[in-house]
Design a binder for these strands. Structure first.
Lengths: 232, 232
DNA sequence: ACCTGAACACCGTTCAAGT
DNA sequence: ACCTGAACACCGTTCAAGT
C-alpha cells in the first residue's frame, strides 16, 4: 500500500537539484516544467505545511489547469519526494583537505543537516516516510567516511551512523513540530504546574520551557559523539 | 493553523486508558462510547495506517451513522490524540525498590517505549506532531527521575532527557517506516550497487541492508548512555 | 442526552479529448 | 508533445432535525 514509491521516474522526470530562492519571475507564460512545479511545491509547503499542499492548488499557483501536473509527475507522492530531495542538498566542502579535525567536521555536517531541515519545517517529518534520495545518501556517505577516518571500526560503523541519524532526526522532528505550536508548550506547562506533585522532576528542571534548542542540540550531540569516540 | 489542539476536552471526554486487547464483543448493540471509538480507531490504524483512518469508515466500523462520532469527539485530530495516548501507557514497575542499577532501568524503560510504539507502527510518526499526553509525561518524569538518581546534575538533566528522547524517537520512526516498505531498501541498495563508486563507504558496510534493528538500537543506546554517564 | 441524513466545500486521479 | 474539463469516488464537518 505504501510501497513501490521509489525508482518510478515518471514519464520525463530526471532528478534535479532545483535552486529554490523564491522564484519570482514575471509570472507570465513560463512553460510548465518539473523544476517549476517542484519549486512552487516547496514554496507552498514552506507557507502552509504538509496539509496545505494540494494538487489542485499547486496547479493553480503554477498557472495551469488542474490536470496538467500529471503529465510531468506520476502522483502527489512524487511531488513530495522531489520537494524533499531538492531541499536536502549538501553544499559543504566536499573533499578538500584531509582535515585532522574529524569531530569538528562531523558536528558541522550534522548541524547543517538539521539547519537545512529546519529551514523547511515540513521536511523532517516527511523524510523517514520517503525513499532515500540522492542527497541524503550523499550525506550518509560523507558522514560514514568521516567517522571511518576518525578511527571507528567497520564493525561499529553502521551503528555509529544510525545513532547519529537517529539523534539528528529525532531532534529535528521534535523541534520542528514544537515550533509550529507554542501553545502546546504553554498548555503542557500549565498542566504540569497543576500537577507538579505528579511530575516533580521535569517540573523542577522546567523541561518543557527550555527554549535553547540550538544549545541543547549541540550539547546532546557532544554526548553522543563522546559515546561513539573510539576508546584509546 | 496547527495550534489550539490540546486541552480542548470535547463535550464529554475524560482521559481514559483504554485497554486494547482487540475488543471482540458480540458486535451487537453496545452503545456508542468514547472508549469504543478510540479502541476501534486503534484497530483501524494498526490495520491500515494513518491514511486508512477515516471518520466515515470509523463510524461504519463502530456501527453508527457517520455523524454520531461528533457527539463524542470534537474532530478527527482528537481521535488521533486519544488513540496515541491510549497506546503509550507504561506498565512498568512504577516505584518498587530503589534499585542501584540505574542504567539497566533506563535501558528497560527506553526499550519498552520503543516496543510500545513499534506494536503500533503509526504511533511513532504521529507522536511529535501531537500534544504531549499524560502517558508520555509519565515516561519523561520516570526517565528524569532515574537519571537524576544516577547522578546526572540538574543542569545537565534536560539535555540528557532530550538526547535520549531524540535517539528513541529517531530510531523508532525510522524503523517503523522502513518496516512498512521493504522495497525501498531493495531499491535503494540496487541504486547503491549501481553507484558503488559514488557511495563506497556505506556500500562497503552495507548500511542499508543491515537487518538487526533491535541490536543496533541497543548498541547505539549504549553509546548514548556512555556519553551521558556522569564522569568520575 | 444521544443519534441521524442531507448538504457543502473540498480532495486525488482517470479518461477521453483537444491542440 | 503537451494541456484540458468533466466526471468518479471519495473526504471532514455544519446544520437542522429527529427521538
Amino acid at each position: 500500500m505504501a510501497a513501490k514509491r521509489s525508482g518510478a521516474q515518471g514519464k520525463r522526470s530526471q532528478r534535479i537539484g532545483v535552486s529554490l530562492q523564491s522564484v519570482q519571475e514575471p509570472r507570465s507564460e513560463t512553460p510548465l516544467s518539473l523544476e517549476r512545479i517542484v519549486a512552487t511545491a516547496v514554496e507552498m509547503l514552506d507557507a502552509q505545511g504538509v496539509e496545505g499542499l494540494t494538487m489542485r492548488k499547486l496547479a493553480d499557483r503554477v498557472g495551469s489547469g488542474a490536470m496538467s501536473l500529471y503529465w510531468h509527475v506520476d502522483n502527489k507522492e512524487q511531488v513530495f519526494d522531489l520537494a524533499l530531495d531538492s531541499v536536502l542538498e549538501y553544499r559543504g566542502s566536499p573533499q578538500t583537505v584531509e582535515s585532522q579535525d574529524w569531530r569538528g567536521e562531523a558536528v558541522h555536517m550534522l548541524e547543517d543537516w538539521r539547519a537545512s531541515m529546519l529551514r523547511h519545517p515540513w521536511s523532517a517529518a516527511l523524510l523517514p516516510r520517503r525513499a532515500l534520495g540522492q542527497n541524503i545518501l550523499n550525506r550518509l556517505e560523507l558522514l560514514g567516511k568521516t567517522l571511518s577516518r576518525a578511527g571507528v571500526a567497520d564493525a561499529d560503523l553502521n551503528v555509529a551512523i544510525w545513532s547519529l541519524w537517529n539523534y539528528v532526526m529525532g531532534a529535528t522532528i521534535t523541534r520542528a513540530s514544537f515550533d509550529r505550536s507554542d501553545d502546546d508548550r504553554a498548555a503542557a506547562q500549565q498542566r504540569l504546574e497543576h500537577l507538579s506533585e505528579r511530575y516533580p522532576t521535569i517540573e523542577r528542571t522546567r523541561l518543557l520551557l527550555d527554549n535553547d534548542w540550538d544549545g541543547a542540540f549541540r550539547k546532546g550531540l557532544d554526548f553522543v559523539l563522546d559515546g561513539l569516540s573510539p576508546r584509546q
